[in-house]
Design a protein around this nucleic acid. Structure first.
Length: 503
RNA sequence: UCCCCGAUAGCUCAACUGGUAGAGCGAGCGGCUGUUAACCGCUAGGUUGUAGGUUCGAGUCCUACUCGGGGAGCCA
């Protein structure tokens, strides 16, 4: 091994002209007779290492040429700035040592199906895309903790095993707790309310489990949620807290992960607009929008766009198919075939959207005041805005028992959802909590719940009750929004989905 | 739980109205001194998800099952 400085790829910019040693894995390799381009990853980034014949021992040159993808190695060379390289720097290799050669790595640089990738999740984590998402997730979680810690909140760890339900009973995972049934937590909220009466401002942050039979791109059965709870706060205060919080996360990610966002193709311009104040709609206003002219026009316009998109894709496909019929080199033929696969997938997606458009229009037009907003309704509202939107004051019937009844209109509760823009949908749900003892007892009864299970919760209204409230933010949904990732399962290292847990 | 689509080489996909399976990537060998999912040549690799049925003949048609994808409802 030559005598040189061990370093990380992220530090290369500080070592231009110097000789350094990297430890990592072979991500990709191209060779051209007397020159090889090895892309090495070390956990901090990617670096192109240029190996020239004659600059290193012939034997080593041959070994490197036959090294399999994901082999581990240390590699030494001189750092130079190079525009053509990933990351802007590259290594002129002077030496290398193979630590462990890898043979037949299953994930190739070409495209793969999602089932295959999830089966190989332990390896897929090494891919550029998953690495970028992981880095952003780290920043999001760091920002969450930083925001609350720096704003006078105290962290409370609420239990994972719970006796009573926080949300819907049917969606609880049951566990056998020494012979008695217990449930995996769906929210730390009830316990958090108790803690808020001690510390004032508190938050909990941990995994949440919901046995919803939801097979969609927005659902996991195990996901991470952060929930703040504040004493002496009203709905307006909660909205302000939520918009400052979300803006803080976005700013943090933009500061720390621009490169990752670019690699992922995220919509950075829109993210940069995410600053308070966010839009505010009441549920009633949202319903008026959904059932009104504006939504029908909006959807009609969208349908037109989709149809022209469909035509464009179809004519592109037709053109490529024509080309395919002509005389071509094999590699040209393959390139066309690959493009066709992508275009056909796009077309299928566009077709689904076209198919759904009138259904969504109908659902929106026929929306009845009193129902909870459906997924498509949320998407429509969210698509109409370029910044997150609060929807507040939902009908009491559609919401949980602990939400505070609006004293000016007892048909609605003082709650809110925050919808991420451009169609991503709900990332936060929250409310002011019912703080009146008698009203809360009544609500528990109305929901057919057993008051016996909520005696301790009612105590909080008995001994110095105060107006208070809080909300929950879904970490994976937030990451999906920030990264532009279509499916939430890519936003956690080892996703747990309904009916399917891979590894 | 419901609706739609799919399952062909290790991976991603082809195979016109039923006529006996073909590419690329990956792997192996060789060539190429600036590649960007590099390129070029050669080699190996398949009882077409399972079980039945129709037919002279099934990857292709029918039935059931298994697995997967997308969407709906519900939600963060």
């Amino acid at each position: 091994m030559p005598n040189s400085n061990k370093t990380y790829i992220s530090e290369l910019k500080n070592n231009v002209g110097g000789e350094v040693t990297l430890s990592g894995w072979l991500y990709q390799a191209r060779s051209s007779g007397k020159i090889q381009f090895l892309i090495v990853r070390d956990g901090t980034g990617l670096c192109q290492c240029v190996v020239e014949k004659g600059k290193i021992a012939n034997e080593l040159f041959e070994q490197l040429k036959h090294l399999g993808q994901e082999s581990s190695l240390t590699i030494t060379g001189t750092v130079r700035a190079e525009e053509r390289s990933v990351g802007g720097y590259e290594l002129a290799v002077t030496g290398a040592e193979i630590i462990s050669p890898a043979v037949d790595y299953p994930i190739t640089p070409k495209s793969h199906g999602i089932d295959f990738l999830l089966k190989n999740r332990h390896l897929h984590l090494r891919s550029q895309r998953q690495w970028c998402i992981g880095k952003i997730r780290h920043t999001v979680i760091d920002a969450i903790r930083r925001f609350f810690n720096d704003n006078g909140f105290t962290l409370i760890d609420t239990p994972i095993f719970t006796a009573a339900a926080g949300e819907e009973e049917q969606t609880l995972f049951e566990a056998d707790y020494f012979g008695t049934p217990m449930y995996l937590t769906q929210t730390g909220q009830l316990h958090l309310e108790a803690a808020a009466m001690s510390f004032g401002k508190v938050y909990c942050f941990g995994p949440t489990f919901r046995a919803e039979k939801s097979k969609t791109r927005r659902h996991l059965t195990e996901f991470w949620m952060v929930e703040p709870e504040v004493a002496f706060i009203d709905l307006a205060g909660l909205l302000e807290l939520a918009e400052n919080f979300v803006s803080f996360i976005v700013t943090h990610v933009l500061q720390n992960n621009k490169g990752e966002l670019e690699t992922l193709g995220a919509d950075i311009d829109t993210l940069e607009k995410t600053k308070p104040p966010f839009y505010r709609l009441t549920y009633t206003e949202a319903v008026d929008i959904l059932t009104g002219r504006k939504t029908q026009d909006f959807l009609a316009e969208q349908l037109k766009e989709l149809q022209s998109q469909k035509q464009q894709t179809e004519s592109k496909i037709a053109e490529l198919e024509k080309q395919q019929a002509g005389q071509l080199k094999q590699w040209q033929r393959d390139k066309i075939a690959a493009e066709l696969i992508e275009l056909r997938a796009d077309l299928a997606e566009t077709n689904t959207k076209i198919e759904n458009n009138p259904k969504h229009a109908k659902l929106a037009a026929e929306f009845q005041w009193g129902k909870d907003l459906g997924g498509s309704d949320e998407t429509i509202i969210s698509q109409m805005h370029d910044k997150p939107v609060f929807v507040t004051h939902y009908p009491k019937k559609a919401k949980a028992f602990y939400m505070k009844t609006d004293r000016d209109n007892d048909k609605v509760v003082l709650n809110f959802d925050l919808l991420a823009p451009a169609g991503f949908g709900e990332i936060i749900g929250g409310s002011a909590r019912e703080d009146d003892y008698d009203l809360l007892v009544k609500r528990i009864a109305e929901y057919g719940l057993d008051v016996e299970n909520y005696l301790w919760y009612l105590d909080l209204r008995k001994y110095g009750s105060v107006p208070h409230g809080g909300f929950g933010l879904g970490v994976e949904r937030t990451i999906a929004w920030l990264t532009g990732e279509k499916h939430i399962r890519q936003c956690i290292a080892f996703p747990r989905m309904m009916d399917k847990v891979y590894i």
